[in-house]
Amino acid sequence: MRPNTAQPVSTPRPVQKAIDELSRLPGIGPKSASRLAFFLLRAKQEQVEDLANALLEMRANIRFCQNCFHITTEDRDPCTICIDPARDAQILCVVEDPLDVIALEKTRLHKGKYHVLHGSISPVDGIGPEDLRIRELMGRIQREPIREVIVATNPNLSGQATAMYLHQQLQNTGVRVTRLAQGLPVGGDLEYADETTLARALEGRREMS
């Protein structure tokens, strides 16, 4: 073969930068990232601006509720769930992340409030109990008239480890600690469970021992 003396042309820097940023998103590989980048290159200027603005606005206006750490808007902190007088203040459902709150809300079965941990215990990822919103949870238990805590962490190892830890922490507080019933797909995520399965798991919750 003859040596190739032509200069290879690389992707222009701004394009490459967009591709790199896109591929850092969960669920997006390098190929999808390129496809998205070139789509946006060809798209109308307004469309790109709308997207960029939507993202910036989301970041600027959405925050985590100071009480339960679910997502909320700047002008509603504490969030609507936390201040809703129709909600049962005695039952608190503890979940790993905001998507779980949304999934549980769809079942319309949980009449109480929530507490979002923002993760689960996973030593390999360097996530321990102190990295989750557990201290804040303990604070709420003291402040609020909570009588039952439903531990709704995922039915996988990390979720189980988190549930066990919470159970130990809550043991001497006098509150009832329950766990969602089995039946959720093992190793799966709460947010992917269908509504009926989730509803059944909630209704069949059991005392942790």
Binding site: I121, S122, P123, V124, G126, G128, P129, M164, Y165
Partner: peptide, 24 residues
């Protein structure tokens, strides 16, 4: 893998927590 990570972390920091180890 999880248990090893926890042992390593506790071993290095010198602060061990039985309540966490017990689960693993």
């Amino acid at each position: 893998t999880q248990r090893n990570a926890l042992l390593k972390q506790f071993g290095e920091s010198g602060r061990s927590d039985e309540s966490q180890l017990q689960f693993w």
